[in-house]
Design a protein around this nucleic acid. Structure first.
Lengths: 154, 154
DNA sequence: AACAATTAGTCAGGGCACTGATTATTTCAG
DNA sequence: CTGAAATAATCAGTGCCCTGACTAATTGTT
């Protein structure tokens, strides 16, 4: 039969991990705001006035996906979009008061949720967990644009 | 400002890990067949004649999602659906020859891809990687149905 | 000043993932 | 045997995620 054991497939594990996170987020943080949406709010708290593309870069979303997420946040009145007077291609993004309030509220809940999520691991294991995932992700990212790893932009 | 560092958020890490995997899968395994689709093929190689719901359970997909995935595989001629004569609610699933061929081909490529994906980790680290992710995922899963963890079905 | 290359954002299209409601069939209780 | 509960699958609706094609604006070169 030659079937394979999925539990040895990192892709399958990655998918399960995300599903597990989704579940916990939904029950412990919010049913309205999703985790990627929170990441966008957070990026704009750190750096108000960013343009759409840069926000996408900060949170790891491509141009199409970030456009959708931002449009949803805009519809909910959590952020404002204004054309950059300096560069008519860009939209500058800024949280509304409501957006700031939402971010503050979710920050607390997210911290609680992360604790529960990571509770099965000891403190040292949590560190390793972050480190291993980050190294694998970074390496795969690096394979996309082999040039970007080096500091010689010609 | 009170913004948070996303790299300490397991949800964000999980998403990045999946994106990284998606990237590698697309370039090293297939642009036609996705990783969840392969998981379904694999489940049916292991246990031909499963019904849709059970396949979903094996690969970790809910009833709606598994229906879509199976419909796509059916359209591509990789599997057949027949009503269970014993139970008219079920559809029994079975790979076609083409489905079997596809599974064989992708199994080889998937193994290569997994090696590349995990290459940044030593052998021991890979074991830890699997273990930690699995423990976190299982624990979160367990929170959904607290009863399921115990062997006392009333 | 004019034209090519680059860049920000949109749009169409395909696929994954979940919830809640609905339909068809089977099973179980009385 | 009949009506209620359970189960397999579908459907509608929302959101994430990517690619490739396109538009509009800017930058850089001649």
């Amino acid at each position: 039969m030659a079937a394979v054991d999925l539990s040895t497939h990192p892709g399958h594990l990655a998918r399960r991990l995300q599903q597990a996170h989704y579940l916990l987020w939904n029950t412990m943080v919010s049913e309205e705001i999703t985790s990627p949406q929170f990441a966008v709010l957070n990026a704009l708290v750190a750096e108000p006035g960013l343009d759409q593309r840069t926000v996408g870069e900060r949170v790891g979303l491509d141009r199409s996906t970030i456009a959708e997420v931002i449009s949803r946040l805009g519809r909910r009145g959590l952020l404002d979009k204004v054309r950059d007077p300096q560069d008519g291609r860009r939209f500058l993004l800024r949280l509304t008061d409501e957006g700031l309030r939402t971010h503050r509220k979710l920050t607390v809940r997210t911290a609680r949720m992360n604790q529960v999520f990571l509770a099965p691991l000891s403190a040292e294991e949590q560190t390793v967990f972050f480190d291993l995932i980050q190294r694998v992700s970074d390496a795969a990212e690096g394979l996309r644009n082999p040039a970007e790893s080096l500091a010689a932009p010609s």
